[in-house]
Design a binder for these strands. Sequence first.
DNA 1: GCTTGTTATGTAAACGTTTTCAGATAATGA
DNA 2: TCATTATCTGAAAACGTTTACATAACAAGC
Lengths: 353, 353
Amino acid sequence: MTTIHEVAQYAQVSIATVSRYLNDTAGVRPETGRRVREAIAALDFQPNQIGRSLKTASTRALGIVIPSLENPVFAQAVSGFDAAARRRGYSVMMTTSEYDQHREIEAVETLLRYQVDGLALTATRSDAPVVRERLAANRAPYTLIYNEPTPDERAVVTVDNAAAAAVAAEHLVELGHRRLAMITGRLAESDRASRRRDGFVGAIARLGLPAPQVREVDFSARDVRPVLEQLLGTPATRPTALFCSNDRLAIAVIGAANRMGLRVPRDISVVGFDGIDLAREFVPSLTTVVQPSYDIGYAAAKAMLDRRAGQDPTMPVILPFSLRIGESTAPLGQDGPTTPRPVCPPQSNEAML
Amino acid sequence: MTTIHEVAQYAQVSIATVSRYLNDTAGVRPETGRRVREAIAALDFQPNQIGRSLKTASTRALGIVIPSLENPVFAQAVSGFDAAARRRGYSVMMTTSEYDQHREIEAVETLLRYQVDGLALTATRSDAPVVRERLAANRAPYTLIYNEPTPDERAVVTVDNAAAAAVAAEHLVELGHRRLAMITGRLAESDRASRRRDGFVGAIARLGLPAPQVREVDFSARDVRPVLEQLLGTPATRPTALFCSNDRLAIAVIGAANRMGLRVPRDISVVGFDGIDLAREFVPSLTTVVQPSYDIGYAAAKAMLDRRAGQDPTMPVILPFSLRIGESTAPLGQDGPTTPRPVCPPQSNEAML
DNA sequence: GCTTGTTATGTAAACGTTTTCAGATAATGA
DNA sequence: TCATTATCTGAAAACGTTTACATAACAAGC
């Protein structure tokens, strides 16, 4: 590893001059600059970011903790986060919490030890005290992504989950459905799932329809089948439309419904939440509430960097969602449009904070 | 930020003792230990990893550069990489190259400046000289993932792309197909796509069939439609089966075929490559060569950490692939099995180095 | 009680940078 | 030519750790 000292020696200048050349922080005489440049080239010198970070108290790195990379929603968010960071010359440290609270805390602590200049996190619940304490105690700015803002917690980038779920409900009701139900991941382990439930249930109440049944399933979605059988067991009272708290779940539900001999959307309509890309290509293509995951990641990084740059970005950032209508929803008893499949441009939606 | 100095002062010991307590590197008297422990708790001290890294010349962080996170294959690899790193107490710095060679070099340089203790990379081509130079010049071990090993370059974790593509060819031929074709991403920009092409073409030659047509398309897969129309234009000589160099392409191809009025697999069979999870849920579910992406990431991290631990892991690491048979392939003229869809367990395959 | 050995602790240097401060050099005006 | 100023450069301290080395404390052996 060649250091600034060797460069200085080679160029017959002091390390201070080399440093100044590197950061062009003060006038370095052209001739001196040339010597330094040559030395750097000759020795193939790359400044050591660790030494730099120690002195400047800035690592020029941001951290991000997400539940899992296997979910395209989070992968996209990381993608946007990385892009925003890179654009400003920052790098990214990333890790996953595997939907585990304990692991989540550990991850945050690890990244803070690395002195990241900002930390984005999808917490299981935004009101989880331990994590918030850790984050608040730190000098680095942080942002919760996908989580629900609360009066105490405004450092959030997300969509209005309740309003978005309401739009899903309205879509189904417009299609003529009256008996609705929701299948969701564990509510206790996800504040966003809870909000989606609230929004869905609330919208249905406002429309004067009977309260929907809500069923929780595991994240693994292994237990979708029995839940579905139980839910759809009695044809007389069977819901005709299902809202799923995320796209993976929706896809699993459609698969299970198929295997149960039900056809989507003829027998039952299904709406997802997330808007993952590949869900477009399914047969039936998935009707889903699209959240701008890339933008969520991007905005989170940007907000923290702005904050560090002395600005005071308005928080929380609530990004627009949209309802992408696919083939998985239709008026009861009708099949959706079939081949050739219509291209459904995302339909932007104004209903946001 | 509380430092080791403040802890030392609070506990009435020297910073050396605090350090020794933290790393339990030498006997600290129980009574002294207690005082230090109390000080740490009282001051909420977390050791600064930057200071640590500078002194120990080890960041306990690994870097990984992949083309894109939007492709589930790479997201899974990162997931495995992170898991392996975490297991050994390492953290991960990640960035994407967006399939751009220039950006790739830049990314590598950035991560090396951060003094990562190891660097995994999916290079556009494993023989790209610039990147290899940069990596080789560095003290940190590196591993190429997904790339093709060459005589010069053994630090690789991947699957045997040629053999895997051959298995795809054999599957199609077994089903009775005789006129085959391949649709691939730009060969010049991906050594693995090239190898898959070679394996596919080679297998077909060995089986005594006419050479398949090979068509390149962009990564965006926007131009799939015209390519497909041109390829399938003349019914008389139209291929009856297509091999796609990756799953995203295969999904796009199936979509385009549908829109052209062709049915998969009745009119044409399609095989993908990657084994992304969601491809299972498509209708038709995708027949694809499954590569163990999580394991690839995991093995890459493990190899580098082993190497740092003084071991000499055997390289290259060639992991097993398997052919997952779905509904997108069938004997010519037949529809695949329909609802209820069969569950196809990954069928392990011995054909590997 | 004195040496010897063992164990626990402290002092100070080092890791690779940036940056303050002061000194040296060059440029300018008389 | 000399003083004065503006520009450039160097010495040294600092960032938060770890660690070699030295020293202090203490027990054991005589």
